[in-house]
Each structure stands twice: as C-alpha cells, then as structure tokens.
Design a protein around this nucleic acid. Structure first.
Lengths: 323, 323
DNA sequence: CTGAAAGCGCTTACAG
DNA sequence: CTGAAAGCGCTTACAG
C-alpha cells in the first residue's frame, strides 16, 4: 500500500507538504500543490485513516450496534439512520453486539447508537463519554452522554383503546410479549389504565402470556378457542403474535372481524398483506431512525441544549381485522 | 482515554511489559503479568485498536458493503454472513456504498464482501489485493483476489420450466425485471432455452417489461387483462412483481390458480403469507451468506486452493398460486 | 525477565 | 512556502 512517504519521495517534497497539499491547507504553493495532487492520484494514494485518526481523533464515523438480522421490522429504522448519517457527512458502520466493545473502545468512532438488547446497560454506562455519546433505541437509561429515543407505547395504547371504546368494544383480551420487557409492560399498562379510566375492568384471566413470536400468539388463541372464551377484541403486544392469533382463528373457522377483532403493534410489512389486513399501531420507523441519529449529531456538534429522553409518537392504522 | 503509558506508569514497568503481559507473551514473569492485568482492568484500559493495527496489519475485521435497507430479502443473507464471521473469530462491519472507499482503502479491514450494486466494478478491481480479498454476491467479475458467489439463475429456471412442462403447461408469459441486469438476463434465458428444448416456442410478445417492483408487475398484469391475453402461467423475474401480478388478477376477478398460475423468484417472506401462497424459487439465503463468507476466510487463511466462481443452487417451492 | 528504541502512517506546531 | 521533528498509541526485535 502506497504511503505518504512514497508520494513525498516521488514528488521530491517533504511529507509535510504532501499532507498540507492533500488536506487543502494554505501553506503550500499552488504549483507544488497541483503537482502533489497529480502524483498522488497517479500513484493511487489514499491516506490511511487509522494513522490519521491516531492524531486527529475525530473520525467522522458513527456506529450502530445491531444484530437482529432476523427481524426485518428494524430495517426501516436503519434506513432512516443511514440517510441522516450520510446527510451529515459521516459514515455509518453497523456491527453486531459481539463486536461492539471493540469498536466502542478503540477510538474509531465519534458516537454510537444501540438497537440491540444484547448490549448490557453496564457496557453503555461505562463507555458513554464526552468523546463517545451514545443514543439508545431500545431502552431508557439515565446517564451522562446517554440519550434515548423510544416509542411512546403508553400513549399509543391509550389512543387505541380510546378508539376501541368509542367503537363500542367492552370486552378485551391482551396477548402479552416477553414479560419483563419495557415494551410489553408499557403496552399492557396503557391498555389497562385506559380501560379503567372508562370504568371497564380488565379481567386478569384475559391476559395471555406470549413471547412476541407468531407461535406464541397461535397458542394463545388456541387456548381461547379451547376454553371457549373469546373476547370481542384481542389486542396483541406485537404484530407477529397477532398473525399467530389470526391463523388459529382462521383454522377454527372463526371469522375476523365478524366474530372477533384482532389488533397488533408495530405495523410490520406483512400487516397490510394479511387477509384480512391487520389493524395495528404503526411506529414511524424511518422517522424514528432519522430523528435518533439527528440527536446524535446535535450532541456531536455541541448543540446539546437540553435533550431529554425522547418519545416517538405512533399512529393507529385501522384496517379490516377490526370493526 | 487511558493509554498503555498510563498503565505502565501506574504499574511501574515499561510499556513493553504491559504490552507483552496483556498479549499473553511468555517473556514476562507471572507475578508482574498478574499485577499488570489487574491494574489494567482497574484503570478500565482497552488497547486502541487503531494504533495496534498500524503495526500489526491484521485487524480481524471484515466488511460487508450493503445499503439496500429497503429490501428485506437480503437480511437472511446477512445473518448467514454474520454467523460465519463470528464463528471465525472475526468482527463484521456493514457499511453503505457511500463509505466503502474509506473502509476499503484504510487498512482497517482484512477482507470485504459486496452486496451492493452501487459499488462499481472499477472500485472492486482497483482495491482487491493480496491484503484485501473481496467476495461478491451480486455479480461475477474476473480479477485477482476477487471471488463471486452467485445464485444459479439459469439452472433454477431450467428446473422450474421442466417442472411446469411436466405438469402440462404449454403457454407461458414472462414478466421481466430491469433489463440489463444479470439476474433478469439469466432468468429469462433459462426459461426460453428450456422451453425451446421441449419444442415450445416462447412468443416474444409474452415478454412483459418490469423493473422488479410490485407496481411494475401490477401494470404488466393490467396490460394482459386489457389486451385479453392471459397465458396459462405467468413466470415473474422476482416475487415482488408476482405480488403485483396477483393483485391485478384478483382485482379483475381472475382466479389463481384456476384461471392462471403465477410464479415468482426469490421466496421473500411475504411469499408464503399471500393468498394463495406464492409458488416461487427459493434461494437459500442463509446458506448463501454463510458460504460466501466461508470462502473469504478460506482465502484469508491462505487455503485458496482453487476457488472458482461459485454458484448457489436454488430450489422450487411449489405452493398454490400454481396448479 | 525487563526496558529503551524504532517504527507503523499520518498531522501539526515550529523554525527557517 | 518548505521541511525537520515530535507525537498519536501501539508492537516487536534487540540488548542487557
């Protein structure tokens, strides 16, 4: 690989001059600058970023920690992130949680985003710093140089339930996701609180335990069918489970939405292709990614006025899996 | 950020000893090694990878160039790649084509994979080298230190058409994707050749021009409907177009597969959720990613016996959008 | 077993 | 305008 030395030798100047010429600094005559640039191009010279960074510190690269390659729900978010990063003249690298320590610690990145539950709170807390601000998508976490942008699950559920109440539903079931997750907790709380505000009690046996997978939704619905206890509306903590629920009902000849309404959360791509199309809560994924990335750049540009934990508002997509 | 110097000072040893101790070299007494390691941990010291790489060259990191975040067809491939990379003890970074030059040229990676049409052949040809082998997913390209792993489109089409002929179909239409792409060319050629081998002429007006989008498939089918010229089977160059085709037929009250069979290519997630489920050609995406990555590691481990352009075999998924 | 020194490829005051 | 030199944080012969 050709280095700055090689170029300097060929151009018969010092390496300082090569560096100065190539970086557009003023202290080099126009004539030599031109010559140097030409020779560099001719020799196919590209500065070694790593050596450069060792001095300069700012790398103009940010990282996204992500490894859930099996859930395409996320890709729209990544697109938003990437577009924002490019717009700001930075480069984005995506790396899996296995590698994140290496990249967080090595001074190669100016900032990071985390969309990966496998990254521990401890790691984030211990590495976030003035030189490495971190933006989180998948959790809220208090700490210096740590920022969160999460979906407002509670508000979304509030909106949904109020909408359903207005439509006259009085009898609700909830298919929950993995128990301790923030998403599940907030979504369920939003449902329960809102019902109770309207004096509709949520009967605890109508809480079905799932784990965010299609299969667990399928099993929950099977249970409803077998125990012959099917509510007017089944609200699921995510779309995948709603898909499973619908599948079980269809198999049993139970009509959606005539006999039962089914509602999801996330608005994954499949949601609008299903028969019937799934009513769900749409998180504006592209905007989410873009917004979170923009916060990182606000911080990097030292405009960090007062960035509080941020909430993204989700919207209900009424489709025909519900009345 | 704490450096090797800080650790050395605190431990009262030279930086050489710190380096040796931390890298598990033999030339340091067990006692001091232990002390150094402890102090390093205590100080929260992590070696700066960039500085290290400046000397060592091997970074144990490979890159995947990818930016089609809107096509979730690819994510299964990435999963395969990532699993293989982790298995080999390397780290993977994914970067968009905007950034690829930066990463290819800067000595930060030991090898690269390309799954991004936006990367030019020129860039690949000019950067692939002994120190930076490159594996391609999306094209075949002759060159030193360049390897390709692509889907055998032709063979897949051959299999499909032979299957269809055996089922008795005699009348075919093809909805093509973007004209000049290797995928489209090979898929169409596979169809045409195989038909002709069985003495079935492919009528050129039965070639409909699309661009791999759902919309273009929809429009192609509209055209068939309006001109009242619907073949027994519509083979599409990818699933997205097949989805569009099915949509148009459904809207027109044309039954699938009773009135017409529709077939796709790719086996995207949606394919098996559609009504009717889409018959398509399934490229084993996970294996594809894994296999291509493994080739990169074969090269990196200098086992490059004789790695020729590699073809991945795709399989037909007979579902009920065809008879 | 231990440490001083050279060097990886750059940038950046600084002196001339 | 130009170049010698120091230094970024490491590793690795080499001498002791």
């Amino acid at each position: 690989m050709v280095s700055i030395k090689d170029v300097a030798k060929k151009a018969n100047v010092s390496i300082s001059s090569v560096s100065n010429a190539l970086n557009g600094r003023a202290n080099v005559s126009e004539k030599t600058r031109k010559r140097i640039i030409e020779i560099a191009k001719e020799m196919n010279y590209y500065p070694n970023t790593m050596a450069r960074n060792l001095k300069v510190k700012r790398t103009k690269t940010v990282a996204l920690c992500f490894s859930q390659f099996d859930r395409n729900f996320y890709f729209e978010i990544i697109k938003g992130i990437n577009d924002c990063v490019v717009h700001n003249g930075y480069d984005l690298i995506i790396c899996a949680h296995h590698s994140i320590e290496k990249f967080l610690r090595n001074g190669f990145i100016d900032g990071a985003m985390v969309l990966d539950k496998n990254v521990t709170d401890e790691l984030i807390l211990s590495t976030a710093s003035e030189e490495l601000p971190i933006v989180l998508f998948d959790r809220e976490l208090e700490g210096e140089n740590i920022y969160s942008v999460v979906v407002d699950n509670y508000l979304a559920m509030e909106d949904l339930i109020n909408g359903l109440i207005k439509k006259g539903y009085t009898n609700y079931s909830f298919v929950g996701g993995v128990e301790h997750t923030q998403d599940n907790i907030e979504r369920f709380k939003g449902l329960k609180d809102t019902l109770e505000k309207s004096n509709i009690e949520f009967i605890s046996k109508n809480y079905y335990h799932g784990d965010f997978t299609e299969k667990s939704g399928y099993q929950a619905a099977k249970l409803m069918i077998i125990s012959n206890d099917i509510s007017e509306v089944i609200v699921c903590a995510n779309d995948n489970m709603a898909i499973g629920v619908m599948k079980a009902f269809k198999e049993a000849g139970i009509r959606i939405p005539e006999d039962v309404s089914v509602i999801g959360f996330d608005d994954i791509e499949l949601a609008s292709y299903l028969e019937p199309h799934l009513t769900t809560i749409s998180t504006p994924k592209y905007e989410w990614g873009m917004y979170a990335a923009s916060i990182l750049f606000q911080v990097l540009d030292e405009e960090k006025t007062n960035i509080k934990p941020n909430k993204i508002k989700a919207n209900i997509k009424w489709r025909n899996s519900s009345r």
